[in-house]
């Protein structure tokens, strides 16, 4: 199958290779949580809720009493994919993604400011159409900011792939399942540091660099958008306070 039309240069869904899907971010969607956010990348839609910082519930999990304990749970809703199948909690894939999100977020949270406390991040995929891992990280960033948890920088993530000898930004499910390489990058936007880099195929060194460069561009664009959303939200809060 041709994922990039050789004559028009468009992808299957009408994007150009270096274009992202439509982004949408909203904070404060879960009233009970300390911070929450909804994030959409095209048809991929995830919700994140943050509880904390709060007292460590299970002391046994605490490794270092001088730093906050960050926990993360990733789940896919049973209705999130086309075929409605029971997704067991704690399967390999969600354990792995939970770990990835936790590590990425830990890199930006100033954990040393909150000793003997714990932060819980819950991310749930409502609708999956490729790039859930990136969307979850972006949603978690928004939710953490909403909860007012101190962070070094905004962490954003975006994926890029390589199909039909073209680097493609932000793969959707169809492109993701094409079997090409899928590079997921997470960066600290202002500090320009990479906190996450995953790839699940082989790529030649120079193509890899191109693909990764494209993903970083995508991350930066998302960071700008997230900053806007947060700014908007802060202004709204300011207005409410009067």
């Amino acid at each position: 199958m041709e994922y990039v039309d050789p004559l028009t240069g468009f992808r299957v869904d009408g994007r150009r290779p270096n274009e992202m899907r439509k982004l949408k971010g909203e904070v404060g969607v879960v009233a009970r949580a300390d911070g929450s956010a909804l994030f959409e990348m095209g048809n991929t839609r995830v919700i994140a809720a943050v509880y904390g910082p709060r007292e460590v519930q299970n002391k046994g999990q605490q490794v270092n009493s001088k730093e906050a304990l960050v926990r993360c749970e990733y789940r896919m809703a049973e209705f999130s994919t086309g075929d409605r199948r029971r997704k067991p909690k704690g399967d390999r894939r969600s354990t792995e993604i939970s770990l990835v999100i936790r590590q990425t977020m830990e890199a930006s949270i100033l954990t040393h400011l909150m000793p003997r406390s714990q932060i819980d991040i819950f991310v749930q995929v409502l609708q999956a159409d490729g790039g859930t891992r990136s969307a979850c990280i972006n949603a978690a960033t928004l939710a953490l900011a909403d909860a007012g948890i101190p962070m070094r920088d905004i962490v954003t993530s975006c994926s890029a792939g390589y199909l039909c000898s073209t680097p493609l930004l932000d793969l959707n499910y169809l492109e993701d399942s094409a079997g090409g390489a899928d590079v997921t990058v997470g960066i600290l936007a202002k500090m320009d540091k990479v906190t996450l880099l995953q790839m699940d195929a082989k790529l030649a060194m120079d193509t890899f660099e191109n693909v990764m460069g494209l993903a970083i561009e995508g991350c930066k664009a998302i960071a700008t958008y997230i900053r806007e959303v947060l700014l908007e939200n802060t202004k709204r809060l300011e207005c409410q306070r009067g």
């Binding site: 299957v12 869904d13 009408g14 994007r15 439509k22 048809n43 086309g82 075929d83 159409d129 959707n172």
Partner: peptide
């Protein structure tokens, strides 16, 4: 199995 597929279609 019967599956419903939803795809985005961007107009430019």
């Amino acid at each position: 199995r019967i599956q419903k597929v939803v795809r985005e279609h961007y107009l430019r």
